[in-house]
């Protein structure tokens, strides 16, 4: 999918502009020299020359707007949230008191509710990630290395389509699939089995379903980049299917797989809406944050709880950064 091929067309477009009439520059020897005309020194030209000669200024122009936006809107907002975690709420007035305290952090770290929910959330996120990778690997491998080009395009469309269907619609779809008189119960009842109903298993199923395309796509892209010639070389050297996959395919696809896990892990870690829709009574970290911001009106405590997923994600990103996974997102 390179654009290199389109480049000559555009270069031609640039070159086919009507050439300015050559102004005869005089070469040092006195003989008129025909060549590239000297451009007029308009203000735009001078600015252009200045920018070409000063790459740092160019960099400044490029970075100014995005850094201003991300810095102001995002970094300041995030920093303010972190600071809020060390404040407290006056229980009478409901106003935030700007005195430094570690109370919220201590509550979150030692409270049994928070510990239980933290472990439950990490467990769910890990399980979802494992399920998604296990499902994504075979289908991505089939798409990238087995299917014919035509089938591959159809498969890509088939995988992409649910990605564009709304998040809520998909969670809602599972709510009706898993309900007590839903299709799953209808299918399983003749075998004496029952739907898991709403609860933690339903949350894991729904989250795995929601993030599956996000995991398939980077892994598919990663596998597509593994050259077929390497697989043939491995076969020529006597490598059977499994050794080839283990020693050739997986190491090369690892950054892409990790990129996929960042999506499923991080998205699961902060989710609270799916839990509300199919999770029954079980809570995740996102729900605790949500209740503390909304009903309980305790932003400092919510911010302290939010520090847990932030710390986990940063830890995970730092861990996988060396694998080059971040370039595969």
């Amino acid at each position: 999918m390179t654009m290199n091929a389109t480049a000559p067309a555009s270069a031609r477009g640039a070159a086919s502009d009507p050439p300015e009439p050559d102004r005869a520059d005089t070469a040092p020897g006195g003989a008129p020299r025909r060549g590239i005309p000297r451009p007029k020194a308009t203000p735009a030209r001078r600015a252009s020359v200045f920018l070409t000669a000063h790459p740092r200024v160019r960099l400044g122009f490029l970075l100014a707007a995005p850094l201003f936006w991300l810095g102001l809107v995002y970094v300041v907002a995030l920093a303010a949230l972190l600071v809020t975690a060390f404040w407290s709420v006056n229980s009478f007035t409901g106003e935030i008191t700007t005195e430094w305290t570690l109370d919220n952090i201590i509550t979150v770290l030692t409270g049994s509710l928070y510990q239980t929910v933290t472990f439950r959330t990490i467990g769910v996120a890990l399980l979802v990630t494992i399920i998604d990778v296990a499902l994504a690997l075979p289908i991505a491998f089939y798409m990238a290395k087995v299917a014919s080009p035509r089938a591959r395009r159809l498969l890509v469309i088939a995988v992409l389509m649910p990605l564009w269907a709304s998040y809520l619609v998909k969670a809602y779809a599972w709510r009706s699939v898993l309900s007590q008189d839903g299709i799953l119960e209808w299918v399983l009842a003749p075998f004496g089995l029952h739907t898991p109903g709403y609860g933690l298993p339903a949350t894991v199923i729904t989250l795995s379903y929601l993030w599956l395309p996000y995991v398939i796509l980077p892994i598919f892209a990663g596998l597509e980049r593994v050259p077929d010639s390497l697989l043939e070389a491995s076969a020529d050297l006597g490598g059977k299917t499994w050794p080839t996959i283990r020693h050739v395919v997986l190491p090369m696809a690892l950054p892409a797989i990790i990129a996929g896990t960042i999506f499923s892990f991080s998205l699961s870690l902060g989710d609270y809406i799916t839990v509300n829709i199919v999770g029954g009574a079980s809570q995740m970290l996102g729900n605790l944050v949500y209740t503390n911001v909304g009903a309980a009106n305790n932003l400092p405590l919510a911010a302290a709880i939010a520090l847990i997923p932030i710390a986990i994600i940063f830890g995970y990103l730092a861990l996988v950064r060396r694998t080059g996974a971040l370039d595969n997102l």
């Binding site: 995005p66 991300l70 809107v73 995002y74 300041v76 907002a77 995030l78 303010a80 949230l81 809020t84 960042i262 991080s266 998205l267 870690l269 902060g270 989710d271 609270y272 996102g286 944050v289 949500y290 911001v293 932003l299 919510a302 911010a303 939010a306 997923p309 932030i310 994600i313 990103l317 971040l326 997102l329």
Partner: peptide, 19 residues
């Protein structure tokens, strides 16, 4: 650049709400 999508939405949400 990656952070707003890598961090869970609820964190971006309450941070911006507070901001």
């Amino acid at each position: 650049v990656i952070l707003p999508i890598a961090l869970p939405g609820i964190i971006t949400g309450i941070a911006l709400n507070n901001f």
